[in-house]
Nucleic acid binder design. Structure first.
Length: 344
DNA sequence: CGATGTCAAGGAATC
DNA sequence: GATTCCTTGACATCG
């Protein structure tokens, strides 16, 4: 089982995730791919075998007013093939998670058309890289527009019209406020789309009171036997927040402690929560990969790996982590980050 | 150089 | 119908 992280690598200085220049300055997919190539080298150096690419690596690739950008996938054909070969050589699983603007269940047909065009481009990038079926495009169902059920219906209707290139890559994730695990399971039954389980979203949004272990098993079962499923895992942010608030009776303002915002992602993954999840919620007989969604990104992954070695020696083998990998003196990565921050 | 404004894009709550 | 938040970083411009 692999541990992965999303987009921005923090553990080594100078790594960028995409060419984010404004259109006036001619950003290009080829530049983004050169950045990813450097990230892959870093991932290999630290033994990370799963990575979510930025969804913005091909700048303005479908922008209606900037047609000069629309040819970049063709222009980067050789670079795409090379980066795909490199990822496979290093055994790094890749994925993408298109932004919130991709809405397949919108009541606005024009927006659906634009969204599909973006997904076609993303699928084409992975295809040109030559990636296998485990390189997926993760999306959410979309908006509710006041009516949940019709929102699901529209998603299914759009799915049925998707080109095969997108259908082969598209997977659906339960979200934190709108479409629950039960909702996406129902969409799976109607479409066959593979599902990505998100533990934090499940805990935030489970009005059907489904059992987590059963739900996870159902999600994993949506993947074919020969493709390793993936899930998202994160811990809730527990930042201590205070706000200025006016007292209704006295009219005076005072500093008030606020409850945590549970849908936020914590900087790191809580080790005991993760280990408990793998021990007691995950099926022992079906492996899956874990995309960590922590603000500290790869640094959180490296920290979790140490924590698994130290506190979860029984589950460590499932992740290929040597039990003796834990070294109490080895806080190198975190220390480097601290020094970099202090030096600036 | 540091501070501030801006970026293609949606959804939803609030007023 | 318009405004603001969500959330996100980093580019780009300004002083």
């Amino acid at each position: 089982m692999r541990l992965g992280f999303a987009v921005k690598a923090l553990g080594r200085e100078g790594l960028r995730s995409n060419d984010a220049r404004r259109h006036q300055n001619g950003p290009h997919l080829r530049v983004s791919l050169s950045y990813i190539s450097e990230i892959l080298d870093y991932l290999n150096d630290v033994g990370i075998r799963m990575y979510r690419m930025s969804s913005d690596i091909a700048p303005y690739i479908t922008h209606p007013d900037l047609p000069q950008f629309h040819r970049q996938i063709d222009e980067a054909e050789a670079e795409l093939e090379a980066i795909g070969t490199k990822a496979r050589m290093l055994d790094i699983r890749l994925s993408m998670h298109p932004a919130q603007f991709i809405v397949l269940n919108s009541p606005d047909p024009a927006l659906v058309t634009k969204s599909v065009a973006d997904l076609v481009a993303a699928a084409q990038i992975l295809d040109r890289m030559g990636m296998g079926p485990d390189a997926v495009l993760v999306v959410h169902v979309g908006g509710t527009y006041g009516d949940h059920a019709s929102g699901c219906d529209r998603w299914v209707a759009t799915y049925e019209r998707l080109p095969d290139s997108v259908r082969r890559r598209l997977v659906l994730e339960n979200d934190d406020v709108r479409y629950s695990a039960a909702d996406v399971l129902e969409i799976h039954r109607r479409t066959g789309v593979r599902l990505v389980f998100d533990n934090l979203h499940f805990n935030c949004n489970n009005p059907e009171r489904q059992d987590m272990r059963e739900t996870l098993a159902q999600f994993l079962a949506t993947w074919p036997e020969d493709v390793t499923p993936k899930i998202h895992f994160s811990s809730p942010e527990t930042n201590f927040r205070t706000v200025e608030r006016r007292d209704r009776k006295t009219g005076k303002t005072a500093t008030t402690t606020m409850p945590p915002v549970w849908i936020g992602h914590a900087d790191f993954v809580h080790p005991f929560e993760f280990i408990d999840f793998v021990r007691h919620t995950a099926p022992p007989n079906r492996d899956f990969d874990v995309m960590l969604e922590a603000k500290a990104k790869d640094v959180a992954l490296l920290r979790l790996r140490q924590d698994i070695a130290r506190y979860g020696p029984d589950i460590a083998p499932r992740f290929g982590i040597a039990v003796d990998a834990f070294d109490p003196a080895d806080d190198t990565i975190v220390a480097e980050i601290g020094e970099a921050a202090a030096g600036e």
